[in-house]
């Protein structure tokens, strides 16, 4: 029984992080119609920055300070996004999609190499945050408390994002731009500003995913590409451009993966892709996608 509860926690843990990554990817696509392949490495960048600040630069500081500094990776990823959008992406909006794919893919590679250049080939850890919280007894088993914190942050992020998009004035502008950029522009919306804001928020979410994941795991080269692929599975299932889709897609992928690891250990990844294939066959735009 306790193992079953833990399996459920694991699924939620996985879904929380995936939602942050895929949600950011989906938000950026929804507003800007750009498939940002560099997104995975913004997640990795968030992880590296947090691991570096919390695990190395300020490792001796008071634990409370360290926990408060956890989102530093998210802020760094957001700043990076705010620089990248106007400089690298904006010149390509009027070109065909292939150009955007090439540019963002190139960016994915460049970011990977920059991280290796700054932080070297070895894994970067910030495990003290993971260890200090200890474990919670669940029946005969124990479960890391930190993982519950991650689940909590995932739920909070989803709630904030929902409120932000559906309950604020900025959210209205964002949705209007997403539905019809030209008309929004004609109505006096500063589209450039909306784009940079949306891109920054998307990067913040990816960075936050990396930042909260890193104490329990570690920042390693290649983590961004893996995350990107999984984020695509999520948005394919949920529908690209839809936040609800990202949320449900992440939950479905989280649960299916947990089930797959236990029951089909030899094909745990294939199970995820199989789900994506089935969804594509039945609902090509994803469960929550808007059909063109």
């Amino acid at each position: 029984m306790d193992i079953l509860v833990i399996h459920l926690f694991n699924a939620l843990l996985y879904a929380s992080v995936l939602f942050l990554i895929a949600g950011g990817l989906s938000l950026i696509y929804g507003v800007m119609r750009i498939v940002n392949l560099a997104h995975g490495n913004l997640y990795a960048f968030g992880a590296y920055v947090t691991a570096w600040v919390v695990g190395q630069a300020l490792a001796g500081a008071h634990p409370v300070v360290l926990y408060l500094l956890l989102p530093v990776g998210a802020v760094a990823a957001a700043l990076l996004g705010a620089i990248l959008e106007p400089t690298l992406l904006r010149p390509f909006y009027r070109r065909a999609e292939e150009y955007q794919l090439l540019v963002t893919f190139g960016l994915l590679m460049i970011l990977e190499d920059l991280m290796r250049f700054f932080w070297g080939p070895y894994p970067l850890t910030a495990t003290s945050l993971f260890e200090k919280m200890g474990s919670l007894a669940i029946g005969e088993s124990v479960y890391p408390r930190y993982n519950l914190l991650v689940i909590g942050i995932g739920v909070l992020a989803a709630a904030f994002l929902w409120a932000f998009v559906y309950k604020t004035r900025f959210g209205v502008v964002l949705r209007a731009t997403s539905q019809d950029m030209r008309r929004a522009s004609a109505m006096g919306v500063n589209v450039n500003r909306v784009y940079i804001q949306a891109f920054t928020i998307g990067c913040f979410m990816a960075g936050l995913g990396g930042a909260i994941v890193v104490p329990g795991q570690s920042a390693v080269l290649g983590m961004g590409v893996d995350a990107l692929v999984l984020a695509f599975v999520v948005v394919v299932v949920g529908g690209l451009g839809s936040l609800e889709g990202a949320l449900f897609g992440a939950l479905i992928v989280g649960i299916v993966r947990e089930f797959g690891v236990s029951v089909f250990p030899e094909v745990e990844l294939a199970v995820l892709y199989l789900i994506a294939v089935i969804v594509l066959l039945v609902r090509p735009a994803g469960l929550f996608g808007r059909t063109a």
């Binding site: 833990i6 996985y14 993982n147």
Partner: peptide, 10 residues
């Protein structure tokens, strides 16, 4: 190269 073993450990 995965860093999440939570499910495998469970």
């Amino acid at each position: 190269f995965s860093t999440d073993f939570t499910s495998h450990i469970t």
